[in-house]
Amino acid sequence: GNQTFHNYLLEARDRTLQAFEHQDYPLEELVEKLDVARDASRNPLFDTMFVLQNTESQEAKLETLSFSPYVQEHSISKFDLTLSMSDEDGEIQGSFEYCTKLFGADAIERLTRDLIAILSQVGINPDLL
């Protein structure tokens, strides 16, 4: 409620770093211990995802082999909503993948505009409440 965006971001960073300590914990074991109701058509713990790809995606060459990034097109969204962001040549690029049964293109366009407006404002003043 009364926390600045900057402080919220620091808190989120700390929680994320703490969560990395448990990243190898088996998902199925966690779901079992939490005794979550299972539905084969849904993820048992979360429906939205944020992905920050901060590694370079460029060609790599070995002696006689060369590797280049492969852009895979998805026809089915794995989650209700996924926001993927990456650093491309010094610019942040983002894309949404979403379930079309839940969201229309107009809703995603509004969400994109709102997110850009929020990021623009906190970029100017990270101490906003």
Results as ranks from 00 to 15, higher is better:
Gly1Glu: 07
Asn2Pro: 09
Thr4Glu: 04
His6Glu: 14
Asn7Ile: 08
Tyr8Gln: 15
Tyr8Asn: 09
Leu9Gln: 08
Leu10Arg: 10
Glu11Cys: 11
Glu11Ile: 12
Ala12Thr: 05
Arg13Gln: 14
Asp14Cys: 07
Asp14Tyr: 04
Arg15Val: 12
Thr16Pro: 11
Thr16Trp: 06
Leu17Gly: 06
Gln18Tyr: 11
Phe20Cys: 12
Glu21Asn: 13
His22Met: 11
His22Arg: 12
Gln23Asp: 10
Asp24Trp: 11
Tyr25Ile: 10
Pro26Gln: 04
Leu27Phe: 07
Leu27Gly: 08
Glu29Asn: 10
Glu29Ile: 14
Glu29Gly: 13
Glu32Trp: 03
Glu32Tyr: 07
Glu32Ser: 11
Lys33Cys: 08
Val36Arg: 03
Val36Asp: 02
Ala37Tyr: 04
Ala37Met: 04
Ala37Ser: 04
Arg38Ile: 03
Arg38Lys: 01
Arg38Cys: 02
Asp39Lys: 00
Ser41Leu: 03
Ser41His: 15
Arg42Ala: 02
Pro44Phe: 01
Phe46Gln: 01
Asp47Cys: 07
Asp47Tyr: 00
Thr48Asp: 00
Thr48Met: 00
Thr48Asn: 05
Met49Pro: 02
Met49Glu: 01
Phe50Cys: 08
Phe50Ser: 01
Phe50Tyr: 07
Val51Asn: 02
Leu52Asp: 04
Leu52Gln: 07
Leu52Tyr: 08
Asn54Val: 03
Thr55Ala: 08
Thr55Ile: 14
Ser57Tyr: 08
Ser57Pro: 06
Ser57Glu: 15
Gln58Val: 10
Glu59Thr: 05
Ala60Gly: 09
Lys61Asn: 11
Lys61Ile: 11
Glu63Pro: 08
Glu63Trp: 09
Thr64Cys: 07
Leu65Met: 09
Phe67Ala: 05
Pro69Val: 04
Val71Gly: 12
Gln72Asp: 08
Glu73Asn: 11
His74Asn: 07
Ser75Gln: 10
Ser75Arg: 13
Ile76Gly: 10
Ile76Tyr: 12
Ile76Pro: 05
Ser77Thr: 01
Lys78Cys: 02
Lys78Arg: 15
Phe79Leu: 00
Asp80Tyr: 01
Asp80Trp: 02
Leu83Met: 03
Ser84Ala: 04
Met85Asn: 06
Met85Gln: 03
Ser86Leu: 03
Ser86Asp: 06
Asp87Leu: 11
Glu88His: 12
Asp89Ser: 12
Asp89Ile: 11
Gly90Asn: 03
Gln93Glu: 14
Gln93Lys: 13
Gly94Lys: 05
Phe96Ala: 00
Phe96Met: 03
Phe96Val: 02
Glu97Val: 00
Glu97Trp: 02
Tyr98Val: 00
Tyr98Cys: 00
Tyr98Pro: 05
Thr100Val: 11
Lys101Ser: 07
Lys101Phe: 03
Lys101Ala: 06
Phe103Tyr: 06
Gly104Arg: 06
Gly104Asp: 06
Ala105Ile: 07
Asp106Trp: 05
Ala107Val: 13
Ala107Trp: 10
Ile108Gln: 03
Glu109Met: 14
Glu109Asn: 11
Glu109Ile: 15
Arg110Pro: 13
Arg110Met: 12
Leu111Phe: 04
Arg113Ala: 11
Ile116Ser: 15
Ala117Gln: 15
Ile118Ser: 08
Ile118Cys: 13
Ile118Gly: 12
Ser120Asp: 15
Val122Glu: 09
Gly123Met: 05
Ile124Tyr: 12
Pro126Cys: 02
Asp127Thr: 10
Leu128Met: 13
Leu128Gly: 08
